[in-house]
């Protein structure tokens, strides 16, 4: 159902929802950006409409709601291992279309590749997704090429206009709360053109792996891992145990975000590491996003959000790299 309500009513609805839900949305953190004099837009808890940053793309994605940067799996005391508790409240997350598509990539790894991950599932099963529209493309986005510019599987779509709030609800709870409101036809804003487009080759021959194309990244990439941390479809983590300094007998086991671009990702016993060269790490990441994942799961992994390009301190462009790979494959096939 579609509705048109005023902002006060929306904020009252938020207040009601906050009893049982934590609401996460992109927020502006002034001066917190990667580059000088820039703000950082990242996810945080909100309680009013005004706190949500609708006008710009978030630097970080929604994924930290389902995959916290550091997540405690177990607490240890001397004799017992105790599973961590799930959060007390359910969650509501505001996100854009590309990110809603990214959710499917997270689900694939955490619910389908091997056994179900119970820590992911307990958050996922209790999270509701609210679509934010895109009136225009942002910088570096290529969602149209990736087919992620449109979404229908949201719990609700919310758009804020100068005077009102427009809602398209697929969620009973909202329909009930808005039963007395003005019905209204609401169609989510979406883009149909981006400034950037990519073409992904159908199949990538072995020769691309050995191409000198990757050498450029060996010198440019500083292995900071930001491209992975901002990516809504990157899912890697490392296990970490620790003991509390004030009580050595107790501690916990956590998982923390990991990056395939950062040193140590592949280290094995005897000091051997695979892909020590940063160009080869770039090759590994790009191939995963546009080829390996698709071979295994039948959908592209990358959803074209462009955040990796936005954040890279060395101005390395992922979309540009995809197009370079495509040109190389075309040349080889000629």
């Amino acid at each position: 159902m579609g509705y048109q309500i005023n902002k006060t009513k929306m904020n009252t609805l938020f207040t009601d929802l906050l009893e049982n839900y934590t609401i996460y949305a992109p927020k502006r953190f002034v001066g917190g950006g990667t580059f000088a004099d820039t703000d950082c837009i990242r996810y945080g808890e909100i309680s009013t409409l005004e706190e949500i940053e609708f006008s710009e793309k978030s630097d970080y994605s929604f994924k930290e709601v389902l995959l916290p940067i550091s997540e405690t799996l177990f607490y240890f005391t001397e004799a017992v291992i105790k599973e961590s508790d799930p959060p007390p409240k359910e969650a509501i997350v505001f996100l854009r279309s590309c990110d809603l598509h990214s959710l499917n990539r997270l689900d694939t790894i955490y619910l389908k590749n091997g056994p179900v991950d119970p820590y992911y599932k307990r958050l996922r099963d209790h999270t509701h997704f609210i679509l934010m529209g895109c009136e225009n493309t942002f910088e570096n986005c290529f969602c149209v090429s990736m087919g992620t510019n449109l979404s229908t599987n949201y719990d609700a779509y919310i758009k804020v206009t100068a005077e009102d709030v427009l809602i398209d609800s697929h969620w009973n709870l909202l329909d009930q709360a808005l039963a007395n409101s003005q019905p209204f036809t609401v169609v989510p804003d979406s883009v149909s053109i981006n400034k950037i487009s990519v073409e992904i080759p159908e199949s990538i021959p072995q020769s691309v792996f050995d191409s000198t194309l990757w050498d450029d990244y060996t010198t440019r990439c500083i292995a900071c891992g930001r491209c992975n941390f901002v990516c809504p479809t990157c899912t890697c983590f490392t296990m970490q145990d620790l003991f509390y300094s004030d009580n050595g007998k107790a501690g916990e086991r956590r998982r923390v975000w990991a990056s395939c671009q950062v040193d140590g990702y592949t280290d094995v016993a005897g000091g051997h590491a695979f892909r020590e060269n940063k160009g080869q790490r770039m090759r590994f990441k790009v191939m995963h996003k546009i080829s390996d994942y698709k071979k295994r799961f039948d959908t592209q992994m990358c959803t074209g959000c462009g955040r990796c390009d936005d954040i890279c301190p060395e101005y390395i462009s992922f979309s540009n790299c995809i197009n370079k790979v495509n040109a190389l494959v075309k040349e080889e096939n000629r």
């Binding site: 091997g114 890697c236 983590f237 094995v268 695979f274 994942y293």
Partner: peptide
């Protein structure tokens, strides 16, 4: 094949090569 492994169950990503998860 030996690769770094943190989870053993297809989640942590460290063991991945191409479209293959060494642990699975």
């Amino acid at each position: 094949q030996e690769r770094k492994m943190c989870c053993g169950i297809g989640k942590c990503g460290h063991c991945k090569i191409d479209d293959t998860y060494i642990c699975l």
